[in-house]
Amino acid sequence: MKEPIEPKGCLRLRKIGNKYMLVETCNGQMNMADVFSLNETAARLWQRINEGRFTPEELADWICGEYDTDKETALADVLRQLSEWKKFGLIK
């Protein structure tokens, strides 16, 4: 994955209590059939990819600036999360 990440357009991040959820909100309707739960770090990563077109490497650099981690660990974590989101059709 060297190209910028594109999230599926009709997914919205919602915070319910202390939980983060991705829900589909196409055509003014909320589809609760497929709801994806995220931890705080994944939720922040989701917010970040919705702010612009970032490559995995750029996202890893951002993670390093936000959290106390090295680039190699951040990139591995970003790639793992993006792979999971791609598998579920949440990103293109």
Rank of each mutant, 00 (worst) to 15 (best):
K92C: 10
K8Y: 13
L75S: 08
K19N: 09
E6N: 10
R12Q: 12
P4Q: 04
K92H: 11
K15T: 03
R44M: 09
I49G: 01
V35Q: 14
N50H: 10
W62K: 04
Q29S: 13
T69P: 00
A76I: 10
M32W: 15
E3L: 11
A42T: 05
F36G: 04
S83K: 15
T25C: 14
T41P: 00
N31L: 08
G17F: 02
G9F: 09
A74P: 02
E6C: 09
N27K: 13
T73S: 10
L11A: 05
R80W: 08
M30I: 15
E58V: 01
A43K: 03
E84S: 14
F54D: 02
D34A: 14
Y67E: 09
E6I: 12
A42N: 10
G9K: 15
L82T: 06
L59M: 12
E3S: 11
Y67L: 07
L11E: 02
I5V: 15
D34N: 15
D77H: 10
I5K: 02
E72G: 05
E84Q: 14
V35M: 15
K19D: 10
D61T: 04
A60R: 04
L82N: 05
F54H: 13
I5A: 01
G52N: 03
P56G: 06
A33H: 12
K15C: 04
L59E: 02
L45P: 00
L90W: 13
